[in-house]
């Protein structure tokens, strides 16, 4: 194993520094979401929070599972589960790019010693009915961050817009420590003893690759998919009934809407998405079927997004919404 430069941060230092950087800039530092997701974007802290008018700033690490990307721990750069550090700034401040560059400095990258480019890369997730405009940030030829201005989520036009910064933690870690394999990244250090990414995660990569590619029972996975989908649909139908119900004037419908478990419906949708990924890794979905199954998951995500916006209307109330709008800062001219 190469010995990394001793002054380079460990993997957990990297996470801690990014978290405290964004905490100091007013972000809520959330914990990873506890249901399997394919990307940090899918966690409700992004998918749902970017909807509606309420401002929000959040940063969290999100382990992201992509069963088809598993390589049994044999490939130095490809992982079944990789970690993203996700930042949502809603609405984005005018100096959002400068803030981002400062965050790189905070993890020990002296920008004057490196080459940074923002290259066009627009992000899109057909499963979530979401897309945005932005760049991949290239640091000495390595893509280290996806920088996106969300335009639409769950098929809903966003107002205000959110900026999403997705740091690839393994890539940054390997870059900072100058190692060629993610498994050689030093995760933590105690005295002279280093614990590596491989020590922490290799078994995980191996066993989940074995499960996802070899053991996962296709029939049962389909059954799970259908059960979760049915439950999610039932919830959405019930919410739709509430929307249609005329308000009696006593605020009861509004109250019922406010307490309606749309967050649970979203969890069910996430489970469907992950099961789809497992079935895909098992090669159980033909290309023709694929489009259809993605459309089923998207239908759930889109319905949830619409319902959530409606529910936010009840939660926020018109007055609050107007007040919040005024606080959206104007782009400032350099002084």
């Amino acid at each position: 194993m190469n010995s990394p430069p001793s002054n380079s941060p460990t993997f957990q230092d990297l996470i801690l520094r990014l978290q405290s950087f964004w905490a100091e800039r007013g972000c809520v530092v959330e914990q990873p979401y506890d249901i399997e997701v394919g990307a940090g974007t899918m966690a409700p802290e992004t998918f749902l929070r970017v909807l509606g008018p309420l401002p929000y700033k959040v940063a969290y690490v999100q382990p992201s599972r992509r069963p088809a990307d598993g390589r049994y721990g044999e490939n130095p750069n490809r992982l079944f589960k990789h970690m993203q550090l996700q930042v949502i700034l809603k609405p984005p401040p005018a100096d959002v790019q400068e803030l981002y560059l400062e965050s790189l400095a905070a993890i020990g990258i002296d920008l004057r010693q490196h080459d940074i480019k923002f290259e066009e890369d627009n992000w899109e997730s057909p499963t979530l009915g979401a897309w945005g405009i932005g760049w991949q940030v290239m640091l000495d030829g390595l893509e280290v961050t996806q920088f996106t201005y969300f335009q639409q989520c769950g098929g809903v036009d966003l107002d205000p817009i959110s900026a999403e910064l997705t740091y690839g933690l393994e890539r940054l870690g390997a870059f900072l420590q100058d190692v060629d394999s993610v498994y050689d990244i030093v995760w933590s250090r105690e005295g002279g003893r280093a614990t590596t990414y491989g020590d922490v995660r290799l078994a995980d990569e191996l066993q989940f690759s074995v499960y996802n590619f070899e053991f996962a029972d296709v029939e049962k996975a389909w059954k799970h998919f259908e059960l979760y989908e049915a439950e999610c649909k039932t919830l959405l139908e019930q919410y739709a009934k509430l929307v249609k119900k005329p308000e009696a004037g006593d605020g009861r419908t509004a109250g019922e809407k406010k307490r309606f478990p749309l967050l649970a419906a979203y969890d069910l949708c996430l489970r469907c998405s992950h099961l789809f990924n497992i079935l895909d890794a098992r090669g159980a979905i033909s290309v023709t079927e694929r489009v259809g199954v993605i459309a089923r998951v998207r239908a759930l995500a889109v319905s949830i997004a619409k319902a959530y916006v409606d529910q936010q209307g009840e939660v926020a109330g018109e007055e609050l919404k107007n007040k919040l709008r005024v606080t959206i800062p104007k782009a400032t001219v350099p002084v």
Partner: peptide, 12 residues
């Protein structure tokens, strides 16, 4: 430093 980084990426 920059050359080293580019070489590393290309190698991968």
């Amino acid at each position: 430093i920059i050359r080293h980084g580019h070489e590393r990426v290309l190698r991968a």
